Amino acid sequence: MSLKLIGSRSSPYVRKVRIVMAEKKLDYQFVEEDVWADTTTIARANPLGKVPCLLMEGGEAVYDSRVIVEYLDTLSPVGRLIPVPGRERAEVKTCEALADGVMDAGVLARMEAIWPHRADSERSQAWIDRQLGKVHAGLMALSQGLGDKPFCSGIHLSLSDIAVGCALGWLEFRFPHIDWRSAHPNLARLQDKLMQRQSFADTRPG
């Protein structure tokens, strides 16, 4: 099967897909795309104009990182990352949704602060603070869920850890002033352990 992934190296959602593909040992072509550029052509593959977007051998497009990684996990028996339907699966997908939500809020806060087509007088600090409040609440919940376990959803690497690791890595990249490591040392330990994996080291943003 010939797979093509359209994305940005700085996107945490794209990174999540790239890590899953590495862990599953799937071959693919990576096509870098800047969706903010005037010359972007992403809408040809995804009408929403967002990455990641996975193109299948026949040209069919699959988009939204959560949909893509669920599909990718079915392509190879190597390193199953999502449990079969049931309570454990729901726990993994909920953890992924929470980690993605942290990234969603962080992206909204960042774009409010840097969007070039908006004057400084039009920016809302209250909106930024509201989104960063969601980031901190999400980190607290992730830390409480991790507790003293070796991984987010038990004793083995799963999609939970990949999603959380991508969220933490993106915060370090885009919001270095947020000292989540001191506030949540268990998340820091998890992140350090994940960064020892080749899939994480190879996709570090920046």
Results as ranks from 00 to 15, higher is better:
Ser121Ala: 13
Gly86Arg: 12
Ile128Tyr: 03
Gly165His: 10
Ile128Gln: 13
Arg197Leu: 11
Val102Thr: 02
Ala188Lys: 09
Asn46Leu: 04
Leu75His: 04
Leu55Ala: 07
His117Glu: 11
Thr39Ala: 11
Glu96Cys: 12
Leu190Ser: 09
Ser182Met: 11
Phe173Gly: 10
Ala99Asp: 04
Val14Ala: 09
Val69Thr: 05
Tyr71Gly: 10
Leu168Phe: 07
Asp192Gln: 11
Ile128Cys: 03
Leu5Asn: 03
Ser182Pro: 11
Arg18Asp: 05
Ser8Leu: 10
Ala141Lys: 07
Ala45Ile: 00
Tyr71Ile: 15
Gln125Asn: 14
Ser76Asp: 03
Ala90Ser: 13
Thr203His: 06
Gln144Ser: 10
Lys24Ile: 05
Leu194Gly: 10
Thr40Val: 00
Ser8Phe: 10
Phe151Ala: 06
Val35Ser: 01
His177Ser: 15
Ser182Thr: 12
Gly133Ser: 06
His184Met: 05
Tyr71Leu: 15
Cys53His: 05
Ala61His: 04
His136Met: 14
Gln131Met: 13
Asp192Tyr: 08
Asp148Val: 09
Pro150His: 01
Asp27Ile: 00
Gln198Gly: 05
Lys149Tyr: 14
Arg9Ala: 06
Glu88Asp: 14
Gly147Trp: 12
Leu81Phe: 14
Pro185Cys: 08
Asp120His: 06
Asp34Ser: 11
Leu187Arg: 11
Glu60Arg: 06
Val14Pro: 03
Met195Thr: 13
Ser158Tyr: 14
Thr74Leu: 09
Ile155Ser: 02
Ile68Arg: 02
Gly169Pro: 03
Asp148Ser: 12
Met103Gly: 01
Glu57Thr: 02
Arg80Ala: 15
Trp115Lys: 03
Arg204Glu: 08
Gly145Pro: 08
Gln191Leu: 15
Ile178Tyr: 07
Leu194Asn: 08
Gly49Phe: 12
Val67Ile: 11
Asp129Ala: 09
Ala45Glu: 11
Lys16Tyr: 08
Leu55Asn: 06
Ser153Leu: 13
Tyr13Val: 04
Gly86Glu: 03
Gly169Cys: 07
Pro150Ala: 01
Asn186Ile: 02
Asp73Met: 15
Asp120Lys: 07
Leu146Met: 13
Met195Glu: 15
Glu122Trp: 04
Pro47Thr: 07
Gly138Gln: 07
Ala61Met: 07
Arg123Met: 02
Ser11Pro: 00
His117Asp: 12
Ala163Tyr: 10
Pro185Trp: 00
Arg15Cys: 05
Arg123Asp: 06
Ala183Gly: 06
Asp73Gly: 14
Asp202Ala: 14
Phe151Met: 13
Ser11Asn: 04
Val69Lys: 00
Arg181Asp: 02
Ile128Trp: 01
Ser158Glu: 13
Leu159Phe: 08
Asp179Pro: 02
Asp120Tyr: 10
Arg110Glu: 12
Phe151Ser: 05
Asn46Thr: 09
Lys50Arg: 13
Leu142Asn: 10
Glu70Ile: 03
Trp127Pro: 08
Ala119Phe: 00
Pro12Leu: 04
Ser182Gln: 12
Ala113Met: 14
Asp192Ile: 13
Thr41Lys: 15
Ala167Ile: 01
